[in-house]
Simulated scan of single mutants.
Amino acid sequence: MRAYPRWIVYVSLAIALLLGLLPLPVAIAPLRPFWIALVLAYWLIEDPDRVGLGFAFIVGLVGDLVYGGLLGEQAIRLVILAFIVQRFRARLRFFPLSQQALTLGALLLNDRIVSAGLHLALGEPTVPSAYWLSPLTGMLLWPPVFLVLDAVRLGAWRRRR
């Protein structure tokens, strides 16, 4: 039985969308993590029955609309990420947080490769080489993101009990 309300998933993803919209100085803009992917990965690991490939696709389309990118780009990127996370979920759940962070860093690097491949295939301008640093930022932010979302999810569980 799930003890937390579904709106927690939606609010956490909405916050991730807003974090992606925050303006950053030009010098550190390439370090912006893929917030939606981090939050979505958490929910894919912790509640795969509620969050799956279709959910990832819809979240990606919303991200495309909010950020004004190529329609479907984030959707396909998040579906690929969701597929890999679902495939290895059983192992990821029992990794220590440090190994989870390394794995998420690799998934975010894979996301950058998919994004670069899509841009190349569609003849769109590619992102500067500094944008390859954002998976490192996402990897470093995974432990606090995981712990905050876990505290929110488990805190909601305790209140309803």
Rank of each mutant, 00 (worst) to 15 (best):
W132K: 04
R153I: 14
L18I: 14
A156M: 12
A156P: 08
F88G: 03
I45V: 10
R89G: 02
A27G: 05
D64C: 04
L122N: 12
A3C: 14
L120G: 10
A116Q: 11
Y131I: 03
P25R: 10
A130Q: 05
G63W: 05
R160N: 14
L118W: 13
P23V: 03
L122D: 11
G52C: 04
G155K: 07
V59Y: 03
L108F: 06
F55H: 02
L104M: 15
F83Y: 14
L118H: 07
A56C: 01
D64K: 00
R158D: 11
Y42P: 00
I15H: 06
L133I: 11
P23R: 06
V51S: 01
L107N: 02
L120D: 12
A27T: 09
W132H: 05
L18V: 15
W7N: 02
A37K: 00
I15P: 08
Y42A: 03
L17T: 09
L122M: 10
L140F: 11
Q74H: 15
L44R: 00
R6H: 11
V148D: 13
P96Q: 14
A106C: 10
G63L: 04
L78Y: 14
S98C: 13
Q86M: 03
R50S: 12
D47P: 01
L71G: 04
F146T: 00
I80E: 07
L122V: 01
L71N: 06
L22C: 06
L118G: 05
L147H: 03
F83P: 01
A82M: 00
P25K: 11
L22V: 12
L21C: 10
L107G: 06
L120T: 13
D111M: 11
P33V: 03
A116S: 11
L65A: 06
A56H: 04
R50N: 08
I76T: 05
A16W: 02
F55E: 05
R89P: 03
R91W: 15
W35M: 04
R159T: 13
V114Q: 06
V85Y: 05
P128Y: 08
R2V: 14
V26C: 08
L40G: 01
A14I: 11
Y131T: 06
L53F: 07
G20Y: 05
P125H: 02
A151C: 12
L107R: 09
P33Q: 07
R161Q: 14
R6T: 10
V66I: 11
F94K: 09
G155Q: 10
V59H: 06
Q86Y: 04
F146I: 00
L44T: 00
R158G: 11
P23H: 07
V79L: 09
L141C: 05
L102F: 15
D49G: 11
P143A: 03
L70A: 12
R91T: 15
Q86P: 00
V79C: 05
L61R: 01
A101H: 08
E124Y: 12
L140P: 00
H119K: 15
D111P: 02
I84E: 06
I58Q: 12
Y131F: 13
M139N: 07
L147P: 02
V26H: 15
Y67S: 09
H119W: 11
A106W: 08
W142F: 08
I76Q: 02
D111S: 07
L97A: 14
I113E: 01
F83R: 02
I28D: 08
G54N: 04
V85M: 04
S115R: 07
A3Q: 15
R91P: 12
